[in-house]
Design a protein around this nucleic acid. Sequence first.
DNA 1: CCTTATTATCGAAACGTTTCTACAAAAATT
DNA 2: AATTTTTGTAGAAACGTTTCGATAATAAGG
Lengths: 341, 341
Amino acid sequence: MKEDTMKTNHVVTIKDVSEHAGVAISTVSRVLNGLDRVSDETRIKVERAIEELGYVKNSLAASMKSGKSRIIVVVVPDIINEYYTAVVRGVEEIASQEDYYTMLFSSKDSHRREQKLFSGELGRAIDGAIIIPAYDELDYYRNISKPVVIIDRYVSGSDMHAVVIDNHKASYLLTEELILAGHRNIAIISGAQEFNIGMDRVKGYRDALKNYGIEVRPENEMIGNWYQEHGYRSTLELLEREDPPSAIFAANNLLCIGCIKAIREKGITIGKDISLTGFDDSEVAQLLEPDITVVRQETAMMGKIGMMKLLDIINRNEKTVYPKKVVLDVELIRRHSVGKI
Amino acid sequence: MKEDTMKTNHVVTIKDVSEHAGVAISTVSRVLNGLDRVSDETRIKVERAIEELGYVKNSLAASMKSGKSRIIVVVVPDIINEYYTAVVRGVEEIASQEDYYTMLFSSKDSHRREQKLFSGELGRAIDGAIIIPAYDELDYYRNISKPVVIIDRYVSGSDMHAVVIDNHKASYLLTEELILAGHRNIAIISGAQEFNIGMDRVKGYRDALKNYGIEVRPENEMIGNWYQEHGYRSTLELLEREDPPSAIFAANNLLCIGCIKAIREKGITIGKDISLTGFDDSEVAQLLEPDITVVRQETAMMGKIGMMKLLDIINRNEKTVYPKKVVLDVELIRRHSVGKI
DNA sequence: CCTTATTATCGAAACGTTTCTACAAAAATT
DNA sequence: AATTTTTGTAGAAACGTTTCGATAATAAGG
């Protein structure tokens, strides 16, 4: 009785399977991994034994020996931002198709946390990483001793594997939209200029202005960080000027929300008293009254392609279809936050 | 020269450390884990060796031997719903404090995916799980051979470790708010009744009506699923009746969004022509015009307590402060989506 | 029918830890 | 000074796999 209980408690190993099937341990392993050739007869015996005993591979032990864990980690700045979770969704879709496990890690935009991850135990356990970097020295990421794909943020001139969107174009389109509605005094609220997402967005804005022969006024460029608070404060400051801008371009979703809050607080109306374009499309942008003109980015696609690139690197796939740096196109979504002047 | 390169390429193991320090492998291990007593002299020697060689523990190997991976998995129905990611944030906070790694897994509300996770390799590798279940047979989760804490959704009568909010109270408060504003014809839009989140929310609604002597009308209970589409269709149906309700209570965030879309489409005004209460608080609920009356749930706290409970179970901590089932309180947030009648 | 090539299987060593048992040295007790 | 206890360390076995070299069995070539 007691022995019975003990037996059921015991987790079944490859050794149990081999004994049950009357073959060597190595044979079972070969059946499991389907690498080498095994006679049909043996294969069936082993498979039946696996079935009967309810064997489940201990991936930890396997990983230790083979050095592969089939775990990839996705590093995002913030787990709660829907923009990032949409990327993760894309990654997960491809990963699970290929029997990889994804682990989500939130860096909270802290390079320290990233370092802790990659220099620590887990950093050694993973097979690869997809990173939205918190640090603008991409060299750091290049020196990670695992396959890495950079997503969303980039430093131009780097030669790392990366998937980004066409920030310059997006920004140009959103600014142009305001110009075409007759605006001449247009402000931009943007975050740090370390990454392409900062520089290209400001550059796209400036280039649009220049192209239409509009003066670029430094005081209209509110550069700070990417968080709501900055959007809020910058907007208040802009609106309290003697000569406030007639249109604002908020360079990401959080800045846009902050901006809207400030505008509301001032009691003026978006699309009438002031025009506004945002960046990332979202539920909020659609539901607001008026709804916000934005660019749609293929966020999930970014994750998907990132993961496919990572797989190519892990498997040293020579005939990959992707260039080192993939730039995704964007699409302007016209809504009602831009009013004619 | 060649040897040099080879040496740097070689990953340093505990054995290298032991040789460098001139002690036994086991001694290094004891220093690393700080379990047994080691003389200060030896400890320092070993620590210096670790420092000099840049040794990083191979957690895979350690896990294999000890049977502990320090990985816990958080299973959520949908990674993109901010309600769930807020929970995950709470979990992560506690987990990283205690040097656990969290792995995020999206079940997509599919029990199949859950089963695949727990019956597969990874299911064996983890130390525990925090689950928002996709399946209403909690017995399934009880039989997972790992420590498990159920979050958010629950089946009454079960005796599993769980952290939930007071759905009945939340629902009661939101309905009462409508009643106190003079409404008598109040509809509820809710999801499936398998879990407490369904049953308690409908029950809270009914109990509020009864308490105020208002007739409970079955045709006012739009029970379906928890997704936007259901909120949208139900609202359209309600509004097209001869005797449409003057107020709607949408029992989660997605239903509420669907509801709002339908109302907008009909060209009527929330807070005036129709009153509305939602459930989960969110950025959207705050930014909409008018902003929506909801209950605030301590979502992150749910994750935190869930993780602390899980740690108690993993460590077989007898003096835990938490009851098996923790019920968190809720708070009504009055905004402007409810109009007096 | 003997040799060589091919195929299927086995046994054992490895992977990098943890942990148990044993033993020597030092400290404490007689 | 002889015994016992405590403390610190070493050595080796174990964890559950993968993988390599060896071997046995079968097929092919002369």
